[in-house]
Design a protein around this nucleic acid. Structure first.
Length: 590
RNA sequence: CGGGGCGUAGCGCAGCCUGGUAGCGCACCUGCUUUGGGAGCAGGGUGUCGGAGGUUCGAAUCCUCUCGCCCCGACCA
C-alpha cells in the first residue's frame, strides 16, 4: 500500500476531548474519528488492526471447538420480556420503535437471541454441547462514554454462548474458554491477569475477568503477592480469622484487620458515652482531625436505600463500604446511597452526622468495627458526634459481614502469609458460568438420556475487540507514538524512500516493496513527496514494527537502513538480504 | 441524574469582562528556494462565531431558551 493512496489522515495535535493515550494516539494516527459521543468511524488503519484482533480471536475460538454465527443487532422486545431483562436492564438498553410502533432494542449482549435460536432447534442431549459465537457490533447507551474505544457506546465484541446437558460439561467448557482466552491475549502480546469477578447484570454463578494491566484502567484489581489469588476489588474478599459465620458473638471476630493504632488497644477500658459538638464536621478527615483522633477510631454510618428498605451500613472510618458485598448480604436487587431527604428522615440529621446509637433501622456492619473500642460516631443530630461509643453496650447490629473494600496490604484471603496489592486494569474479556438463568426463563430445554426434560446449562464468554486494540496501545507506546506488537500491527513493514524524485531510490523502494509483498508481508510505502522529518514522525506515530529507510547514500553501497520501532538502533542491510531478514523477524510472531 | 466547563476556519486556540466590519498558530492552495527527524520567503481565507429568540442604531460579545461536547461525581457489562 502506498501512503499517497491510503486514507490515513495523521494529526500533529491531539484532539482536545481525548484524555487517555490510546484515544489520543488512535485519533492522531488516523485510526478512528469520532462521530458522536462514544461512537466512532474506523478508518482503514484502525480497521486493519481490528481485523487482526478479530482473526486471532476467530482462530482460537474455532480451534477451541466453537462455531461462528451472526445475530441481529436489532432485537424484538418480546425476547427481552421473556428473560425479564426488558425491565431489569436499565437505561443502557437503547429501546427503539419501528414504524408499527413495535418495541425493539439495540443488542447490548445476545443471551436472549442465542437462547431463542438454540431452543428452537435443540431437543436432545445428543445435540449438546454447543458453543456458538459471533463478532458483532454491540450498543450500550453508557451514562458516560469516554476514553475513545475503551468505553464507547457502540463497540465491537466477540460473544460466545455455550449450552450443556450437565454441570460438569459446562464447567469443562468454562475451563476450555478460560484457557482459550489466555492463548488469545498472549497472542495479542498483552500483559494481562485473569481475576475473579462479580457477575453483574448478566447474572450467573461465577466468573473471571481478563484484565490488561494499565494505570489508566477503569477497574481496580487486588492480587496476592504470594499465591495466584486475584480478584476485581468489587469482589476481593478480606481474610476472615477464625470463623466468618454471621451471628457469632461480635467480639469473637477480627476480620483480618490492621492492628489498631497505638493507644487504642483491644481491651482498653470502656469509657462513658459522651456527646460532643462538631460544627460543620462531616467527613471522616474533618471529624478525626477536629477531635484529634484517627480515622480508625471512627465508625462510619452510611444510609442505603434498597428494595429491602432503608438500611444502615457501618464500617471503620479508614475503610470504604463495598456496595457489591452489601448488596449480596442484603440479597437486594438494587441498592443506592440514600438521598439527603431519606437521610434526614431516618436520622433526624443532615448527612454526615448519622450514627448507630439510637438509630431505628436495620443495621449491618463490617467486621472491622468489632475492633473499635471507645469509637466516634455521628450523634444523629446536626453538628454533633458521640465519643466513647462501644458495640453492644451502646448499639446492636443486625448482622456482620465482610462489607468493606480491600486495601493494599490486606492479608490474602486464600493463602497463609500473602498480602494483597492493588493494580489497575482494563477489562478485555469476561467468562461467566450462567447456569440456567436464561434457559429456565425462556424454556430452553432438552431431553436427557432418561427422557426427562431439563433446562440447558449455559456459559457466556465475551471479548472486547476494540478494547484490545486500545489496551495494546496503553501498554505499547512512547512519546512519539504507537509501538505495535507484530501480531496486531496494521502493516508489518514501513518503507521510507527519502527522496521520491530520485529514480534510483524509487526503483529500489519498488523492488523491496514487491519482494516483501511477494513474501506475504503487508507493506506500507511512504511515496509522498514530503520532507524526511514528516515521514519519520508519521512512521513513529503509526508504529509499524519494522521501518526500512532507503536513501541515496546507503543505496550506493547496495544497502538500506533497518530500524525496529521498539528500539533505537539502526542497522544497514544489503538489498538482497531484506526479505530474508524481515521474514526472520516476523516468523516467531506469525 | 448532580456539580463544573467548553462550543469562533479542517485541527489547536485568542477575542467576550468593557457591544462598533472575524483573528493567531498549524494545516490547505499558488510560486520560488530548500530537501535524512514536523523547512524559508511571498501571495491566497476556505467562517451560519453551535441553534433559536430577545435587548440595541449595531451582538461572537449582554439576556432567555435550546442542542452538542468535555471533566468530576453518582451509576454501570
Amino acid at each position: 500500500m502506498r501512503f499517497s493512496q491510503i486514507f490515513l489522515p495523521t494529526l500533529k495535535e491531539s484532539p482536545s476531548d481525548a484524555e487517555v493515550i490510546s484515544h489520543k494516539l488512535m485519533t492522531r494516527a488516523g485510526m478512528i474519528r469520532k462521530v458522536a459521543a462514544g461512537i466512532y468511524n474506523y478508518l482503514p488503519l484502525g480497521l486493519k488492526v481490528i481485523r487482526k484482533v478479530e482473526n486471532i480471536v476467530r482462530e482460537e475460538m474455532n480451534r477451541a471447538g466453537a462455531q461462528e454465527v451472526f445475530m441481529p443487532m436489532v432485537i424484538p422486545s418480546e425476547l427481552w420480556q421473556e428473560s425479564g431483562r426488558w425491565n431489569a436492564y436499565g437505561k443502557e438498553l437503547l429501546r427503539i420503535k419501528d414504524r408499527h410502533e413495535r418495541d425493539f432494542c439495540l443488542g447490548p449482549t445476545h443471551e436472549e437471541v442465542i437462547t431463542d435460536m438454540v431452543r428452537r432447534e435443540v431437543r436432545s442431549y445428543r445435540e449438546l454441547p454447543r458453543n456458538l459465537y459471533q463478532i458483532q457490533t454491540k450498543f450500550r447507551d453508557e451514562i458516560r462514554p469516554r476514553f475513545g474505544l475503551m468505553r464507547g457506546r457502540e463497540f465491537i465484541m466477540k460473544d460466545a454462548y455455550s449450552f450443556h446437558a450437565t454441570e460438569e460439561d459446562a464447567e469443562r467448557e468454562y475451563q476450555n474458554m478460560y484457557d482459550t482466552y489466555c492463548r488469545i491475549f498472549e497472542r495479542c502480546g498483552l500483559k494481562f491477569r485473569a481475576v475473579e469477578a462479580e457477575t453483574g447484570a448478566i447474572g450467573g454463578k461465577f466468573s473471571h475477568e481478563f484484565m490488561v494491566l494499565a494505570d489508566t484502567g477503569e477497574d481496580a484489581i487486588a492480587s496476592c503477592n504470594k499465591c495466584n489469588y486475584a480478584a476485581n476489588v468489587e469482589k476481593a474478599e478480606i481474610k476472615i480469622q477464625g470463623s466468618g459465620v454471621r451471628g457469632l458473638p461480635p467480639q469473637a471476630l477480627n476480620g483480618g484487620q490492621k492492628p489498631a493504632p497505638a493507644g487504642f488497644k483491644q481491651g482498653s477500658e470502656e469509657k462513658p458515652l459522651e456527646k460532643v459538638s462538631t460544627p460543620g464536621m462531616k467527613s471522616v478527615e474533618e471529624v478525626s482531625g477536629f477531635l484529634r483522633t484517627t480515622p480508625q477510631k471512627l465508625i462510619k454510618t452510611l444510609i442505603y436505600h434498597s428494595d429491602k428498605g432503608v438500611v444502615a451500613a457501618l464500617v471503620r472510618g479508614d475503610y470504604e463500604i463495598n456496595e457489591s458485598k452489601l448488596k449480596k448480604l442484603l440479597d437486594a436487587e438494587w441498592l443506592n446511597l440514600a438521598d439527603e431527604e431519606t437521610v434526614r428522615r431516618t436520622t433526624n440529621a443532615p448527612s454526615g452526622f448519622a450514627g448507630p446509637v439510637g438509630l431505628n433501622i436495620t443495621m449491618f456492619a463490617d467486621y472491622s468495627i468489632q475492633a473499635v473500642i471507645n469509637g466516634v460516631t455521628g450523634a444523629n443530630e446536626a453538628d454533633a458526634h458521640l465519643i466513647n461509643v462501644n458495640l453492644n453496650r451502646d448499639f446492636k447490629i443486625d448482622g456482620f459481614g465482610d462489607l468493606r473494600m480491600v486495601v493494599s496490604g490486606d492479608s490474602c484471603p486464600r493463602c497463609a502469609d500473602g498480602n494483597l496489592e492493588i493494580f489497575r486494569g482494563i477489562e478485555v474479556g469476561h467468562v461467566f458460568k450462567l447456569g440456567t438463568k436464561y434457559s429456565e426463563a425462556m424454556n430452553a430445554t432438552f431431553l436427557n438420556e432418561k427422557g426427562q426434560e431439563r433446562p440447558m446449562i449455559m456459559g457466556c464468554y465475551g471479548i472486547g475487540i476494540g478494547r484490545i486494540a486500545a489496551a495494546s496501545i496503553e501498554q505499547n507506546h512512547d512519546e512519539n507514538g504507537i509501538i505495535w506488537p507484530i501480531p496486531l500491527a496494521p502493516f508489518q513493514a514501513h518503507l521510507i524512500p527519502i527522496n521520491v524524485n530520485d529514480k534510483a531510490t524509487m526503483d529500489a523502494a519498488e523492488t523491496v516493496s514487491k519482494n516483501l509483498t511477494d513474501a506475504g508481508l503487508d507493506v506500507l510505502m511512504d511515496d509522498r513527496d514530503e520532507r524526511a522529518g514528516i515521514k519519520f514522525n508519521d512512521a513513529d506515530l503509526i508504529g509499524i514494527p519494522v521501518r526500512l529507510t532507503i536513501g541515496s547514500k546507503t543505496l550506493k553501497e547496495g544497502s538500506v537502513e533497518l530500524k525496529m520501532r521498539k528500539s533505537p538502533e539502526i542497522n544497514l542491510i544489503k538489498l538482497d538480504k531484506v526479505v530474508e531478514k524481515i521474514s526472520a523477524i516476523m516468523r516467531p510472531a506469525r
